[in-house]
């Protein structure tokens, strides 16, 4: 699938903040268990996280949710700063991390404006009862290296290999191909697919919702566009009739 450019569209309006994506990601990708202790140390690892904001004063208060994961930027700030090429851009438009090469300078994590890179401060441990649920397709990362969302690259690889073998086409939005978070989302707030395929759901959404030369305004935006990182994740903003008209900081 060398001609693909994987990306995601996240409809914030549909997100209920249920955290199903977070749990799915933890189990699919062998992400270490975040105990209370580790949370308190501020060293938790969540490849996708649901950030929660409170808006308004009690009792007229609203919870806002926004899932944040690696944006797989086309011009990723994390890539040039890695001294050993542990993070680089592959030919499918993804920002990938090579665990074996990483020496843990943490430079990439500092330079990521989205704060989606996670460092293994400790050797990850699972209770004996859980060791058998580890995904055999995914490396268990040792201490001292960075990790982050891979768009479940193992699923892409396996599915495309199997499709090749069987000589079949993979449909857009096939469950076997999509990342775990997308498959687990009960409200289908996360949509994932190939931006190079003009008929894919993500392409259609991007066409419909993103503004093109200011001619048309949809709900789409990219996070921190002013940094010029060109993310491959598009957010669709919340529809709220009661929301105050505020000018976002550029």
């Amino acid at each position: 699938m060398a001609d693909a450019k994987w990306g995601m569209v996240i409809d914030v309006d549909k997100c209920t903040g249920c955290q199903a994506c977070v749990v799915a990601c933890q189990s699919e990708n062998n992400v270490p268990i975040n105990t209370e202790d580790i949370f308190n140390q501020r060293r938790a690892i969540e490849w996708i996280r649901v950030e929660r904001y409170w808006e308004g004063e009690f009792p007229d208060v609203k919870a806002r949710f926004i899932p944040v994961l690696c944006q797989h930027c086309d011009d990723a700030p994390c890539e040039p700063v890695c001294p050993v090429f542990a993070t680089y851009h592959n030919n499918e438009g993804m920002n990938v991390q090579i665990y074996n090469r990483c020496i843990g300078t943490r430079f990439c994590a500092n330079n990521c404006p989205y704060h989606v890179r996670y460092f293994n401060f400790w050797e990850p441990e699972w209770p004996d009862t859980l060791t058998h649920q580890l995904n055999p397709d995914v490396t268990v990362r040792s201490r001292g290296i960075m990790e982050k969302c891979t768009f479940c690259v193992q699923r892409i690889r396996r599915t495309s290999r199997e499709a090749d073998r069987d000589g079949r086409e993979i449909e857009d939005g096939a469950r076997e191909l999509s990342p775990a978070c997308v498959n687990s989302c009960p409200t289908s707030a996360l949509v994932w697919g190939d931006f190079n395929n003009k008929n894919s759901k993500v392409s259609n959404l991007a066409e419909k919702e993103m503004s093109h030369n200011g001619s048309h305004h949809g709900r789409g935006y990219k996070m921190m566009e002013n940094l010029g990182t060109s993310p491959n994740v598009i957010y669709l903003k919340k529809i709220d009739k009661h929301a105050k008209e505020t000018v976002a900081h550029e």
Binding site: P80, V81, C82, P83, V84, F85, T105, F107
Partner: peptide, 8 residues
């Protein structure tokens, strides 16, 4: 090869 773009 090392990444010569990196200040490190």
């Amino acid at each position: 090869w090392i990444n010569i773009r990196s200040p490190f």
